[in-house]
């Protein structure tokens, strides 16, 4: 199968998924207790304002019609308007997304830098103290509540030692140095959780490739052990790990919500939480929609990478 055909086929499968995602996100609005127009009006309780909202969101029309109108707008990039700031939701999302993407990217770098070497080491030295220690650290990374780890790191590095700022964010184009210091702690917090998952999967994949015939052959040819591990085993073990990286991105987006809250980083997650507390439902729906879209795209990317990296699938 050619790459183009593979990608086209995957995209066709995505259409129904995306349709159901949109239905789910639209249905969130139906969960609002009581009269949705009253809930959307927030503090403005006079009747003309509520009537205006009811007309504007077509709340007097059947649900199916409401969905069609909403979906039509979403497809044209119109995600509604924030009740709080009166700005278009799409504009808000576009301004916050790069911040979260930078955070996610930095966290992923940390996760890969820790997770893959730790996984390789623990597979190569299976059953030793190093293996046990790496497993224990990975398990801790998976079990620690990240927002608490963030608070503890702030306590240590900002409050006690004063080495890093406790919170805030500086854009990279304003001051790159300050940007890196503000993003460092949050990336460590987010990266450690994913590092644990990466380590476990790398270890599992390495154990499998290390027992493969071609590795035995390489050893029989007396290829140095370092090369056997890094070139023969790791290269093949990395294929499933690549896929996992894209899927773990969803965990990063979830984690970013709390991490941004703790470090006061004005990103996607903070937009979601502020939207929740301001009862700014269009913003909440917008964030959920875009995070689902990103996640679906990354999964597609992972499938494509997997296809490209694995010659056996191309036949």
């Amino acid at each position: 199968m050619s790459l183009a055909r593979f990608v086209a086929r995957r995209i066709v499968v995505l259409v129904p998924t995306l349709f159901f995602v949109s239905v789910l996100i639209f249905s969130l609005q139906q969960l609002l207790p009581g009269d949705a127009a009253l809930a959307l009006a927030g503090e403005e309780r006079d009747e003309t304002a509520v009537a205006a909202i009811r007309a504007r969101y077509h709340l007097d029309r059947p649900v199916v019609v409401q969905y069609a109108i909403w979906m039509g707008k979403v497809l044209r990039g119109d995600l509604g308007e924030s009740l709080r700031s009166r700005l278009p939701v799409s504009e808000l999302l576009a301004s916050k997304l790069p911040v979260t993407l930078e955070l996610a990217f930095a966290s992923m770098l940390i996760a890969l830098a820790i997770g893959i070497p730790a996984g390789v080491l623990s597979a190569a030295r299976r059953g030793t103290v190093a293996d046990l220690a790496a497993n224990l650290v990975a398990l801790s990374g998976l079990s620690v509540p990240h927002f608490w780890l963030g608070i503890m790191l702030i306590l240590l590095f900002a409050v006690r030692l004063g080495w890093l700022p406790a919170s805030g964010y500086v854009a990279p184009w304003e001051n790159l140095g300050r940007n890196l210091t503000t993003i460092l702690l949050p990336s460590i917090v987010l990266g450690t959780g994913v590092a644990g998952v990466m380590m476990r999967h790398t270890r599992g994949a390495m154990l499998q490739t290390l027992s493969a015939d071609y590795v035995r052959t390489a050893r029989a040819k007396s290829v140095p052990e370092r090369l056997v591990i890094l070139k023969h085993a790791l290269r093949n073990a990395l294929i499933p790990v690549i896929t996992l990286g894209a899927i773990e991105f969803g965990r990063l987006l979830s984690g970013a919500v709390l991490t941004e809250q703790i470090f006061a980083i004005p990103g996607f997650g903070k937009l979601l939480v502020d939207g929740v507390f301001n009862r700014d439902y269009a913003v909440v729906q917008g964030v959920v929609l875009v995070s689902a879209g990103l996640y679906v795209l990354l999964n597609l990317l992972a499938d494509v990478l997997y296809f490209v990296a694995n010659p056996r699938l191309r036949g």
Partner: peptide, 12 residues
Amino acid sequence: AIPFLIVAIALA
């Protein structure tokens, strides 16, 4: 397709 915690936050 919607990350776990984001579903939970939106629903809550």
